[in-house]
């Protein structure tokens, strides 16, 4: 086992273990944060740091093979779809009228000029109505 192999395997150890730690931190955030908007950011940690470091560590383990190509493909795919899915969830929540919690000082979270589109503030209860039947 050459020095090079030891360095590679050490790097992949570090990256897999730190990726695992970030995964658990992200999951803690998803449990601990008070509202939907802050949980989005905890989920972003799982998507970016957790997935990225784990895939990087696995790719280092696999070496230059077909397996690495597939890992890179999975990585690229997660890199493109992860933010898109997060944005879709956030946008759907915003359009349905959900707004982030304010902090303790009572400062308004949403500037007056961005409340658009003005939709009824109730959360999913109003989604049970059939939107298309009103047209």
């Amino acid at each position: 086992m050459s020095i090079f192999d030891i360095v590679i395997s050490g790097l992949s150890w570090i990256s897999i273990v730190s990726g695992s730690i970030f995964l658990i931190i992200g999951a803690t955030g998803i449990i601990r944060f008070p509202d939907f908007w802050s949980r989005l950011h905890a989920a972003a940690i799982v998507d970016s740091a957790g997935a990225g470091l784990l895939l990087f560590g696995m790719a280092l383990q696999a070496g230059l093979t077909f397996v690495t190509v597939k890992l890179v493909l999975i990585g690229v795919f997660l890199l493109i779809t992860g933010p898109t899915a997060t944005h879709a969830v956030a946008n759907a929540a915003f359009v349905s009228g959900s707004r982030p919690l304010g902090d303790k000082s009572g400062k308004p979270v949403v500037p007056a000029d961005v409340i658009d589109p003005p939709l009824p503030p109730e959360m999913p209860t109003n989604l049970s109505e059939d939107l298309t039947s009103k047209t």
Binding site: I30, R39, A43, V46, V89, A93, M123, P124
Partner: peptide
């Protein structure tokens, strides 16, 4: 508690 929390959880 909301639908969007659940969708986010499913995605994660």
């Amino acid at each position: 508690p909301t639908l969007y929390d659940r969708v986010l959880a499913v995605n994660t």
